[in-house]
Design a protein around this nucleic acid. Structure first.
Lengths: 256, 256
DNA sequence: CCGCGACTTTGACGCAGATCAAACCGGCCG
DNA sequence: CGGCCGGTTTGATCTGCGTCAAAGTCGCGG
């Protein structure tokens, strides 16, 4: 599998610069120290000073997963926590008859395993190629116990996740299909912008089915809504993603 | 409304023993120290030793709210956090055209304001009469900074909430009306049992509309599903609540 | 005791989105 | 180049739940 050249001027390695063309690749460059980490500023590690950072670095190892690979499944013994540095993960829960709810998509800078609990509460797989810092859970907890500052940061991250989850409840419980899809695109765009991507074109590495399972819809409905948005020139369909033609309009569609 | 005699041996006052007959009352007994607090064992305070508990006690004041009273609304400056000792709260978000999503019901022992952030992320009102410990937010944060143990506990509580939120996403996104109502009753029953209530009869202080706005349904649908469960003798409708006649069956209906 | 208001139940009907089905598209491998 | 495969689009039809409407219940205040 190739991973060297990107199809535009954007730096090609993995990291915070999610690429417009949605073809971001994760470098396999092996170990790389924290201070040149592209997602440090937006990650939980941002609260650590140089010394602590080195100590944490010593605990970490680089892990990479290829597209479709499963990191863990719900109920597994949680032996590791991760900090995503590149690529996209889906976190989901399954129930009978193949029903699935994707509780979130994780982007570079996001942390997996905030709860620090003994078992994973959801399953996770890589959507495209993913790179992450891996920490042994026990070791990470021991480290956190000695750094209240980091614990405070983890708590902030967890309550931020909680807020996002509650907003998503509103979406799932009380919004129409069109509002759901528009709101999804708007939030994704905001997250990418925050990561430093240009975000006029949003990469969508996940399938229509993934989006549907996140939004409480079917893949056909998602497809229809996107087609409609394209017909109305709110977005333009491009391979691997969408170009946002009328952000203001999209935003209006996304809110109640 | 009477509040003295329960229909079984359960003590009737306010606190952890949510009453079968759903007529629980919050005493107006004013200040009451932590060590005789009925919800301490299940609250975040459970992690504190005698000294710390007294220090925290000094920061707290007793607050009470009567049914339908609003504690705060989304976006308000968050000047206080609360620990519920009695009664039921609804936490919700509003959007246009009167649409509402109730993100959760809070019972005795639950904490309001886990995020410690500057503004409330949702609105809260009392469903029945509610009593709570009130802490000035700034003071509480300062206290937490000095007690990593308590921070750790708050973090656990927050991630527990997050798990609950994710489970609720599954419910909202991927379950039928009947499954939603059944699952709601099952979870509520579990929470009440944990609080020490007998839980053969579940009190439902909230209206059908409240339930509907929690489950992503209309009040008519909730009513129809409950009628159906009653027709099938899975539950029995009693004033102010439901008597669970066939818990196993209900549980089966509630899962996928 | 009556009447009012808040909530609930029940019925008839309609529609947003699910389901079923088929064609389409682009990438990959032989 | 051609056929396959995973994913997407689009159309036709179906249905679970929403909407609209009306009657029923209960507690409360006059």
């Amino acid at each position: 599998m190739e991973n060297s050249s990107a199809d535009d001027g954007t730096p090609s390695g993995c990291g915070a610069t999610a690429e417009p063309a949605a073809t971001a690749r994760c470098g396999r460059s092996g170990a790389q120290s924290c201070d040149r980490c592209r997602v440090r500023a937006v990650s939980v590690c941002a609260c650590l000073d140089q010394d602590d950072l080195e100590a944490l670095d010593a605990l970490s190892e680089r892990a990479s997963f290829e597209a479709k690979q499963t990191l863990f499944i719900q109920g597994d013994e949680a032996d590791a926590v991760y900090n995503v540095t590149c690529g996209t993960l889906r976190l989901y829960k399954l129930l009978t008859e193949g029903r699935r709810q994707i509780v979130g998509f994780l982007l570079p800078g996001d942390f997996v395993g905030l709860s620090l609990s003994e078992r994973y509460g959801y399953s996770a797989d890589a959507i495209d190629d993913v790179a992450a810092c891996r920490f042994d859970r026990e070791a990470f907890i021991a480290f956190v116990e000695r750094k209240p500052h980091l614990l405070r940061r983890l708590h902030e991250a967890a309550t931020h996740e909680l807020t996002i989850a509650q907003d998503h409840m509103v979406l799932l419980g009380r919004r129409s299909a069109e509002e759901k899809v528009a709101a999804f695109l708007v939030t994704l765009r905001r997250r990418l912008t925050r990561l430093g991507a240009s975000a006029v074109t949003i990469p969508l590495p996940m399938t229509r089915l993934d989006m549907a399972d996140h939004l409480g819809l079917t893949l056909e409905t998602v497809s229809r809504v996107i087609s409609k948005l394209a017909r109305q020139k709110v977005v333009l369909m491009v391979p691997g993603g969408l170009r946002i033609m009328d952000p203001a309009r999209l935003e209006r569609l996304g809110e109640g």
